[in-house]
């Protein structure tokens, strides 16, 4: 479960160099297209597949068949079957839905809670800032999985609880990132100018600061999607997330573990699928970061 706080870009706003910012960005995108392009294409395909899963899956993901237990990959069952005779390929496709939803929904949760808190803390400072920051200190002092464990241990597991829990795990780091960006932006002259013409705090936050804070927040968020997918899978794997007969990838791997000797494909298929998903999102996030980061395009003179 990668910890997003370690990202080196925290608070690092793209600084305007001699070239206008926007033009730099277009250039940069033209220069570093590969990661971004591959990531975007891969992810689009994955999302499409996940969305169409019920229609393109050759079998229902819960259809059992005693006759077809633990069959190796074949023309009929591309990735073989599991111990209940369910088609691994179909289940994997359905799992893509859960995994992507897990990643994006949990990230959305962390953004919805974290970004406003960060904006508020960074702009208003004072006691509110102090309380928010000390709370994130406490939350960050739990290793990420422990916080999830703690939240999930107390109630019967279910997918939506898993999403909320994973989202909350990443709230403190979202708050910190947003706050540090806001701190920097609040001193910028265009924010001072907005204050000088008597704008309300709400307007300054959403119209002046937020549009400039989005790019770095989104870069971090895109990487956090992968953390959320991995953390969600891990929690499902140890039995605190999705419950059988769900086709969550983490759960599938967990269920396939006793059968490793006889049917390794049941465990390998979801693992590889997860790898591809995470790589796609990572490529996209890294591509974005490089494209937005003027440091990668520095020149002397």
């Amino acid at each position: 479960m990668p910890h997003p706080d370690a990202a080196p870009s925290e608070g690092g706003l793209p600084k305007a160099g001699r070239l206008p910012r926007r033009r730099r960005r277009f250039q940069a995108i033209r220069q570093a297209p590969l990661k971004l392009l591959v990531g975007a294409v891969l992810l689009t395909v994955l999302v499409a597949v996940a969305a169409a899963a019920p229609w393109i899956a050759p079998y229902g993901f819960e259809d059992m068949s005693i006759l077809k237990r633990l069959k190796p990959p074949s023309a009929a069952n591309w990735l073989g079957t599991d111990e209940f005779g369910r088609d691994v390929f179909s289940r994997m496709l359905m799992g893509a839905r859960l995994s992507l939803m897990m990643g994006f929904a949990a990230t959305a949760v962390s953004l919805v809670i974290g970004v406003p808190l960060g904006l508020w803390a960074g702009y208003r400072r004072g006691p509110v800032d102090e309380i928010i920051m000390r709370s994130t200190d406490v939350l960050l002092s739990f290793p990420p999985i422990m916080l999830g464990l703690l939240m999930l241990a107390v109630t019967p597991p279910s997918l939506w609880k898993l999403i909320i829990a994973v989202g909350i795990v990443y709230v403190p780091s979202t708050v910190r990132l947003t706050r540090s960006i806001t701190l920097g932006l609040a001193g910028e002259e265009f924010v001072q100018a907005a204050r000088a013409r008597g704008e309300k705090t709400f307007y300054i936050l959403h119209a002046e600061i937020l549009p400039n804070a989005w790019p770095p927040i989104m870069v971090e968020a895109s990487l956090r999607v992968t953390f959320a997918i991995l953390l969600g899978a891990a929690l499902s794997f140890i039995g605190l997330g999705a419950q059988p007969p769900s086709s969550d990838w983490g759960l599938m791997i967990s269920e396939a573990r006793p059968l490793l000797d006889r049917a390794p494909w049941v465990a390998l298929a979801p693992g590889l699928a997860m790898g591809i998903t995470v790589i796609a999102v990572n490529l996209l996030g890294d591509g974005l970061r490089e494209a937005l980061d003027p440091r990668t395009k520095r020149r002397g003179g």
Partner: peptide, 23 residues
């Protein structure tokens, strides 16, 4: 401070930072 905000304004030093690059 409405009246002050109308009657008194400010021009800043740094051309890159004085305008919101997203607007």
């Amino acid at each position: 401070l409405g009246s002050l905000r109308k009657r008194a304004q400010i021009v800043f030093q740094n051309p890159d930072s004085s305008l919101n690059s997203r607007r």
